[in-house]
């Protein structure tokens, strides 16, 4: 690309012409973006509308119409079906997210500020753990939990989530701690504080946002998980997603129950997204390995 060629292809425009073009382009962009908003929101409309339809309202020509009679039957049945699962999901996701955050914080601290020989190797091996398909460990994992007498329990499910969450939590925390100036840690060391004292007095008080990111990330992924839940838990300990899947599997024509169920199941994570979207975003970006 020579300079001459570039110059030829970019003739001088009058100012107003350029301004008009700019305006046209940003209007076009806005219209296109709105069109895609439709694509993303359409399923939500479907979920809401269908969930309030009566079980008898199955006429396909009204598929996209508002309910002719607003009914809560779907919601009631879905709630009865899914609420035990919601309790189980909370029992796994809340402690799971908290323990993950503590482990991630300790690991991240050491890997960022208190490195030991071979720390890079350990970090790389952790990172690979982030990508392993759980299918490759599932058969032995089930066997291991059976041997440990934990088979089918909520504890085994939480343990699995905590362990396989170590890599991502460590990564997020490490990247965050890398931004805390080394001088702060050094100063504390010079004052004679040991590793743990420094952690308590310097690192933890500066970790608020990172803890929020990790806890939200882990809570969301534990809550939304289906694979581990279906492999590792027994009937009484099924989580919300497993119950939702069962509710869906039982339906052929009538969707009001599973649609209501999908909304109920998604409510906690959607609520977090709406209230704490900023931290949710940060977790996602960190999940992309780019801190």
């Amino acid at each position: 690309m020579t300079a001459v060629a570039v110059e030829k292809s970019a003739p001088q425009r009058t100012g107003s012409d350029a301004a008009r073009k700019k305006l046209a382009w940003s209007s076009a962009r806005f219209v296109l973006l709105m069109f895609f908003v439709l694509f993303f929101v359409l399923p939500i409309y479907v979920l809401l509308v269908t969930s309030f339809k009566n079980a008898s309202e199955t006429d396909p020509s009204h598929a996209w119409a508002l309910p002719s009679h607003w009914s809560f039957d779907g919601w009631r049945t879905a709630w009865d079906e899914i609420s035990p699962g919601l309790a189980n999901s909370f029992k796994v996701a809340v402690p799971g997210a908290l323990i993950s955050a503590v482990l991630g914080s300790l690991n991240g601290y050491v890997l960022a500020k208190w490195r030991f020989p071979g720390a890079d190797v350990v970090f790389t091996l952790f990172l690979f753990g982030m990508f392993i398909p759980y299918q490759a460990v599932m058969i032995p994992l089930v066997q291991l939990f059976t041997n440990l007498n934990l088979s089918g329990s909520l504890f085994s499910l939480m343990l699995a989530h905590v362990v396989y969450g170590i890599p991502i939590c460590t990564l997020i925390m490490r990247n965050y701690y890398a931004t805390i100036p080394d001088e702060l840690v050094e100063a504390s060391r010079v004052d004679g504080a040991g590793m743990l004292r420094t952690y308590w007095s310097i690192i933890v008080p500066n970790s608020g946002p990172a803890f929020a990111v990790v806890i939200i990330w882990q809570f969301t992924s534990i809550w939304n998980d289906f694979l581990f839940a279906v492999f590792l838990t027994g009937t009484n300990n099924w989580t919300a997603t497993v119950h939702l899947n069962n509710l869906l599997g039982a339906q052929t024509v009538n969707f009001n129950q599973p649609m209501a169920g999908a909304l109920i199941t998604s409510a906690p994570t959607l609520l977090i997204y709406v209230l704490l979207g900023r931290f949710f975003m940060r977790g996602m970006m960190a999940g992309a390995l780019k801190g």
């Binding site: 895609f36 908003v37 993303f40 929101v41 399923p43 479907v46 979920l47 969301t220 809550w223 939304n224 998980d225 289906f226 997603t241 939702l244 899947n245 869906l248 969707f255 599973p258 649609m259 169920g261 999908a262 199941t265 998604s266 994570t269 959607l270 977090i272 997204y273 979207g277 949710f280 975003m281 996602m284």
Partner: peptide, 16 residues
């Protein structure tokens, strides 16, 4: 709007 589906599960997505 574009990001909210990330907050829900594949199973819920499957339903709709």
């Amino acid at each position: 709007v574009y990001l909210f589906p990330m907050a829900i599960s594949f199973v819920a997505t499957g339903v709709v």
